[in-house]
Design a protein around this nucleic acid. Structure first.
Lengths: 188, 188
DNA sequence: CACGAATTTCAGAAATTTCTGAAAGCGCAG
DNA sequence: CTGCGCTTTCAGAAATTTCTGAAATTCGTG
């Protein structure tokens, strides 16, 4: 690996970080490398840059494609596959959120639903189900919110982000207006 | 392990899920068990319920405490430590978000900052830095939003969640009112 | 302070995951 | 159909992580 030091540091960091995520070192490194690369790279260039085996790169790319985190590009007059990350970081964020949800929350949600259908056979099970219901309710609220928010265009999403908790004040204010309106009606 | 089937299924699921998270099976199982338990449990009860070694439980509890996901409780006239999860699922969510941020995003943010300080020594590095800056910008926006939102009380947070993307419309509407107001002033 | 119950530590065993090289597969140009 | 450039597969090697039992430590009590 004879990468420029800045890029090397970035790539190595993503490699280390990989394990805190669910991905392995090589996958993290490949992703980082593609992310900062000005052009799509082919597998051999990646092998070269990272100093890992060809087959390892093949598997890593496979996994990244399964995550929708890299795309195959074709370069004219070149038979080899070239790989690139989506350019727009917001797009990357969306993909990441979607895939993590699919892998990390959906399965749990479905297990919870299933367990909540069953009739409890004892006091212990009754209590456990109540706790599961709490968890299920929270996750459902979060995923509903997510499904809702992900429909927004990036522009508007960024706007909301920028507002942060000030949104709360806005909602509060609106509440007041609405409830004032309602009071008028009520006392009419 | 002779747990009621419903609880057993829940515990096993969390064990499996553990690996998709950064935690191991035993830790996942211990957490799940404590989560549905009506009272705090001591280490031996956990050993008994899960059928793993005493030392494994000790390490698992240690890790869960490092994550602030379980608390030690003391039961009168009993020397042994007893363990429980926070009762409020919103509280759990907050802890989880905080800890994951600390472990999964803060380190990256700080590496990015560091790399962005350095002077690029080539065109490749210049381009890489530009990409890193994009990533840094996005992460910072997200964490700022998070820092902001986490200050809200649960009540209000739930309210916002329920609104979902309708918040966007609200913001849009408010924008209009504000810009109308401004136009009035401008043309005055 | 010595005893014993409870807990933690730790070195190595067991299990799992990652990585590699060799072989197989694929598709196209000649 | 054959040879060639490229990619994937896969069995086992290497590395890492998890788990265990035994020993060490901690801490309250008599």
């Amino acid at each position: 690996m004879q990468l420029p030091p800045l890029i090397q540091a970035f790539v190595l960091h993503f490699g280390e970080m990989g394990s805190r995520w669910g991905i392995n070192r090589t996958v993290g490194q490949i992703y980082a490398l593609l992310y900062v690369s000005p052009q799509p790279l082919n597998a051999d260039q990646i092998v070269d840059a990272l100093g890992v085996s060809r087959s390892n790169v093949s598997m890593g790319l496979r996994e990244l494609q399964a995550w929708n985190l890299v795309k195959v590009r074709h370069i004219p007059d070149d038979r080899r596959d070239h790989f690139a990350t989506p350019g727009d970081v917001w797009e990357i964020l969306r993909v990441l959120a979607e895939e993590r949800k699919k892998r990390e929350v959906d399965p749990t949600l479905s297990v919870l639903r299933e367990l909540l259908m069953q009739a409890p056979a004892s006091e212990a099970e009754r209590h456990a189900q109540a706790r599961m219901a709490e968890m299920h309710g929270l996750i459902e609220q979060l995923t509903n919110w997510y499904e809702d928010v992900k429909k927004l265009e990036t522009e508007r999403l960024a706007q909301l982000l920028a507002l942060g908790s000030r949104v709360a004040r806005l909602v509060e204010a609106t509440d007041k207006v609405v409830s004032l309106g309602r009071r008028k009606k009520d006392t009419r």
